[in-house]
Simulated scan of single mutants.
Amino acid sequence: MALSDGDARSGVTMARRLGVSRFWLALACVLFSAPIAANETAEPSATELIEGLLSGREPVGGPFELTDQTGHRRTDADFQGKLVVIYFGYTYCPDVCPTELQSISLALDKLGAAADTVQPLFITVDPGRDTPARLADFVSSFHPRLIGLTGSLAEIRKTAIAYRTFFAKNGATTADHYSVDHTGFIYLLGKDGRYLGFLPPSLSPDAIADAIRARLGAK
C-alpha cells in the first residue's frame, strides 16, 4: 500500500509521541512507500520531501533571506566563509527542539577553537509566533553564536522546501495554541554555501562534533 501524505504527517506525530527517531520513520517512508501521485498543488508532500533528502537525488539548500533575532535581514551569503549548521524547529517545541539545539551547542563546545569557523542557525517553522524578540529570548539559552531566523510564512516555507524540510500545524485549539509537526534533520553547509549533507535526529554531542570536524576542511 502506498504511503499517503496524510500517513507521513501522522507518522511524524506518532514518532514525536512515542520517542521514535524521525530518521528511521523517514527511512521507512522511503523503503515501504510506492510512488505517489502528483500533488494538486505545486508544493511537495511530506513523503516527497523526505524521499528527496534521503535518496540524494534532489538538490538540497539554496539562497534565502530571513530576519534574525535582532530584527536585521540576513541572507545565506552573510554566512559564507564558515561551515554552517542549520536546524529547523520552533520555540514552543516542548522537548525535541531544545534537546537538539543543546546537543549542537555542546558539540560546538567540544570543538574548542575549531568552532570559531562554524555558524549555527536556528530557522523557525512557526513564524506566526516566533517573532525576532521571541527568538532572541529563546536562542540565548544555547550557544552564544546561535542565530535565530524568522520571516513571513511564504519565506519560511520556501526555505524549508529548499532544505527538504516538512512542517505543518497540528492540534490547534485556538489561533495561538498548537504544536508544529516537522522533520528534525541537521543540515551542514560548506564555507562556500554549498550543501554538504545532513545528520539524523538524536545524535549525541560527540557524534555531531565528529561530523562537523570531518567537514571543517571542506570549502
Rank of each mutant, 00 (worst) to 15 (best):
Pro44Ser: 13
Ser55Cys: 01
Cys97Phe: 14
Pro200Arg: 10
Leu153Trp: 00
Val12Trp: 12
Leu196His: 08
Ser140Phe: 02
Thr75Leu: 09
Leu203Glu: 12
Ser55His: 03
Gly148Glu: 03
Leu18Tyr: 06
Arg129Asn: 00
Gly81Ser: 10
Ala28Ser: 11
Lys158Asn: 11
Asp181Tyr: 08
Glu65Asn: 07
Thr150Pro: 00
Tyr90Leu: 05
Ala28Tyr: 05
Gly56Arg: 05
Tyr87Glu: 02
Leu196Phe: 08
Asp137Pro: 03
Arg16Ser: 15
Tyr178Thr: 02
Gln102Val: 08
Gly112Asn: 13
Val118Met: 04
Ser103Arg: 10
Leu27Ser: 05
Leu216Val: 13
Gly217Glu: 10
Thr13Asn: 12
Thr124Ile: 04
His72Phe: 14
Asp78Arg: 14
Ile104Lys: 12
Ala115Lys: 08
Ser45Gly: 15
Asp137Phe: 03
Leu189Val: 01
Ala168Thr: 11
Asp192Ser: 11
Met1Glu: 10
Arg215Leu: 14
Thr99Phe: 12
Thr165Ala: 08
Leu54Phe: 03
Ile208Tyr: 06
Arg164Gln: 13
Arg213Gln: 13
Leu189Ser: 01
Ala34Leu: 14
Gly148Ala: 04
Glu155Val: 00
Ser103Gly: 06
Lys219Asn: 11
Phe142Ser: 01
Phe166His: 09
Glu48Arg: 09
Thr183His: 00
Asp116Ala: 13
Phe79Met: 13
Ala15Cys: 00
Val96Gly: 03
Leu108Lys: 07
Leu121Asn: 04
